[in-house]
Simulated assay, not measured.
Amino acid sequence: MSVYVQPYTIPNVTIKREEEQLFISMDNAKENTYQLFSGNRPHLEAINKKIGESKNSMFRVTLPVDEGPYYFVIKGEDFETNIFSERVIQLKQAINFRDLGGYQTTDGRVTRWGLLFRGDQLSKLDETDRRLLEKMNLKTIVDYRSEHERTVNPNKQIATVIQTVHCDPQSSFSEAAANAVDLNEENVKLVRQLEEGKIESKYINGKGENVIEDYQFLITSEPAKEAYKKFLQTCADVANAPLVHHCRGGKDRTGLGSMFLLLLLGVKEEEIVNDYILTGIIRKDRNQLKYELYQELTKNEDYLAYLMAMIETREEFIRASIERIKELYPTTTDYFIQHFGLTQEQIDTMREFYLEEGMNK
């Protein structure tokens, strides 16, 4: 039986799935009677079905993935959690599709569940996956991939999707992936670049300096400005939600897009960093596989260290991007207004729509 432990939901709540069984627990709970409520829409009035009661805040319930999505609230005496759900959507043919709900902001609010998603490419979705996304009423797809990537691996059609917005930030970091036909060709190209001296020697180690430089370059580059402006403007029209933005693996281009969006909404920096790091946790097995494939192509330890740094999601990578914005602008809000051309009214509207008051009490 496959077991999936959600890497993060909301503070103090843990979710583990074993096929159709969900195990939900609340950390550091006092001895009390707790009730678990569920619903298929991320609104308190819809989360009204009591599905469990416990004196130790531990629940086991049967909830098949394909009958979801599920949203939950735990209630106790004079206590109620925020809404929460399974952060990583349990799709069969995409491993990094996840909800951006439940993140805390600096003013005490949280991002709403079921409206904003990030993911990897949607080219292999099966019918069960597509039905689940349709039940989530997914309306808009923002695709950061290049035209070549989209041609080689076109996304599957999802009946509820009204529009797909293409916006390629032209990240040099993603160039090998963008021009490859499959994973093997991508790996061969990466190793060949190293062997042919196309990568500066100062980068050929495990420090990841090239990742930091590329991320920081995207903070100001014109193609990235136009791409992420289109993404943020799409989010600013709240009628486009529920919305997912994605690239190939959901790591770099999508990681920066998520950083921009969460920063704009006023999410705490620690939460933004944690969201970025989640990709590495989710892709741990895949990264190990890639390492083994790299080993088949080269035995050079410096090459291997360089290649692994490129696929990892280290805290310093995303923090360097945030620090770059702070260096250039008095406030992050100034960055979104002056660099991307958003208005204060748009930002206020987004915060009003995508955030809700914290419910823990």
Results as ranks from 00 to 15, higher is better:
residue 3 V to Y: 08
residue 5 V to K: 15
residue 10 I to S: 07
residue 12 N to E: 14
residue 14 T to L: 10
residue 20 E to H: 13
residue 20 E to W: 03
residue 20 E to R: 13
residue 28 N to A: 11
residue 38 S to M: 15
residue 42 P to Y: 07
residue 46 A to D: 15
residue 48 N to H: 14
residue 49 K to L: 07
residue 54 S to D: 12
residue 55 K to L: 11
residue 60 R to H: 10
residue 64 P to V: 11
residue 72 F to E: 11
residue 73 V to S: 12
residue 77 E to T: 14
residue 77 E to C: 05
residue 78 D to V: 02
residue 84 F to T: 08
residue 85 S to D: 06
residue 87 R to L: 06
residue 88 V to Y: 01
residue 90 Q to D: 11
residue 95 I to R: 03
residue 96 N to C: 04
residue 98 R to H: 06
residue 99 D to P: 04
residue 100 L to G: 06
residue 102 G to I: 03
residue 104 Q to D: 06
residue 106 T to L: 07
residue 112 R to M: 00
residue 116 L to A: 15
residue 116 L to P: 04
residue 120 D to P: 00
residue 121 Q to I: 03
residue 121 Q to E: 13
residue 121 Q to D: 10
residue 127 E to Y: 00
residue 137 N to K: 15
residue 137 N to I: 06
residue 138 L to R: 12
residue 139 K to G: 10
residue 141 I to F: 07
residue 141 I to D: 05
residue 151 T to R: 15
residue 155 N to L: 00
residue 157 Q to T: 11
residue 164 T to W: 00
residue 168 D to H: 13
residue 173 F to T: 03
residue 175 E to R: 13
residue 177 A to N: 14
residue 178 A to E: 14
residue 188 V to D: 09
residue 190 L to G: 03
residue 195 E to T: 04
residue 201 S to K: 13
residue 202 K to N: 05
residue 204 I to K: 00
residue 208 G to H: 04
residue 208 G to C: 06
residue 215 Y to P: 07
residue 224 A to D: 12
residue 225 K to D: 08
residue 227 A to Y: 08
residue 228 Y to E: 09
residue 231 F to N: 09
residue 231 F to P: 04
residue 247 C to H: 07
residue 250 G to L: 08
residue 251 K to W: 04
residue 253 R to T: 10
residue 259 M to P: 03
residue 263 L to K: 05
residue 264 L to F: 09
residue 265 L to R: 06
residue 266 G to T: 08
residue 267 V to T: 07
residue 267 V to C: 05
residue 270 E to F: 02
residue 271 E to V: 06
residue 272 I to A: 03
residue 278 L to A: 03
residue 278 L to H: 01
residue 279 T to E: 01
residue 282 I to S: 00
residue 283 R to I: 01
residue 287 N to W: 01
residue 295 Q to P: 02
residue 296 E to W: 02
residue 296 E to G: 13
residue 299 K to E: 12
residue 308 M to Q: 12
residue 308 M to I: 05
residue 312 E to S: 13
residue 315 E to I: 01
residue 316 E to V: 05
residue 316 E to F: 13
residue 317 F to E: 02
residue 317 F to I: 08
residue 321 S to H: 05
residue 323 E to A: 14
residue 323 E to C: 02
residue 331 T to G: 12
residue 333 T to V: 15
residue 342 L to V: 12
residue 351 R to I: 04
residue 357 E to R: 02
residue 358 G to S: 12
residue 358 G to Q: 04
residue 358 G to C: 11
